[in-house]
């Protein structure tokens, strides 16, 4: 139990970082109605771009901005494969993701792992988040405001605010209409291809940003860091949806639900690890959890459907 409790702040921090990626997945999966598998590659791209630039002496914000742009570029590739080449969206994601493995390797100078020298105090000082701040800010080695829960929490709140505003604009509404009903969107003069590409860029930009944050948190980026990211993202989206769909109607709150979903996912993960599960089984566990939650609505409709009540409204 103490192992678990000690790991809790770290789990919440990691959940918050992955929550940003989950928001990206939410944009494609829920709003655009596309299962975009690009994220498995673009997550690592974000970390790779960040670690190389930061190690090369770039400012932490510059490096994060570059990571965001690199992710958007990956989204652009998937989007164009779909919109301009007519390849089904799910295949586009798989193709880009596979190609990105080589690209990520190239970015990382063909090393499977690149580390940030966090043992050097002044390097560590420059990072936005780090594993070392989790306990360090409590013990007093670092100021308390540097705690990753606070920093990433604030960062996420700003992101949700920006996204909330964006999806209220004409362009954002066009994106939502594209995902809701493409026929209607085109009939209302919306370029649905453009909207899909833009949505994929936005989504993968966020995913890469999350990758850049995780790279800082871990103090290193390794080539397989994004493997199964889509499943974690989906898990967060689904957990958030199952727990809060009745409670949260507002769009900003729905995004918050996704972040909470990611946090819960990491807490559960820590709990399972604390019970002594071999970490190598985690991916299997994640896949099972997501499979079960994705099946629930289907089972519910098929086996537990309530009979329709007679005597409904006359003008239904």
């Amino acid at each position: 139990m103490t192992v678990f409790l000690n790991a809790l702040p770290g789990a919440v921090s990691q959940g918050l970082v992955w929550g940003i990626m989950a928001i990206g997945v939410y944009l494609t999966y829920k709003i655009l109605d596309i299962a975009d598998l690009t994220v498995d590659g673009s997550f690592c791209t974000g970390g790779a771009v960040f670690v190389m630039l930061f190690a090369g002496g770039a400012n932490v914000w510059t490096a994060m901005l570059a990571a965001l742009l690199a992710g958007m570029l990956a989204g652009l590739v998937s989007g164009l494969l779909n919109a301009a080449c007519g390849i089904p969206a799910i295949l586009c994601g798989i193709l880009t993701q596979l190609g990105l493995y080589s690209v990520n390797m190239a970015i990382m100078d063909f090393k499977a792992s690149v580390a940030i020298n966090v043992t050097q105090a002044d390097t560590l000082e420059k990072l936005l988040v780090s594993l070392r701040f989790v306990q360090g800010s409590v013990k007093g080695d670092f100021p308390l405001w540097r705690h990753p829960i606070l920093v990433v929490g604030l960062f996420t709140a700003c992101l949700i605010g920006v996204l909330y505003a964006f999806f209220g604009t004409e362009l954002g509404s066009a994106l939502r209409a594209t995902g809701s009903n493409g026929n209607m969107a085109r009939a209302q003069g919306i370029n649905t291809d453009f909207c899909k590409v833009l949505g994929l860029m936005l989504s993968n930009g966020l995913v890469a940003l999350s990758g850049a944050l995780l790279c800082q948190y871990n103090g290193a980026n390794e080539i397989n860091v994004g493997r199964g990211a889509i499943v974690i993202g989906l898990a967060a989206v689904i957990i958030g949806d199952v727990l809060f769909s009745k409670l949260f109607r507002n769009f900003a709150l729905k995004l918050l639900a996704v972040v909470i979903g990611a946090i819960i996912y990491y807490i559960v993960l820590q709990a399972v690890l604390a019970m002594g599960l071999n970490p190598n089984y985690l991916k299997l566990l994640s896949a099972l959890v997501v499979a079960v939650f994705l099946s629930l609505p289907y089972w519910k409709g098929r086996y537990f459907a309530k009979p329709v009540k007679r005597g409904g409204a006359a003008n239904a």
Binding site: F166, G168, T169, E170, L171, G172, S173, A174, Q188, I190
Partner: peptide
Amino acid sequence: ARRGQRRGLRWGL
């Protein structure tokens, strides 16, 4: 209501 117009970053409603 915005059919045929450029959709930018003005409020959608």
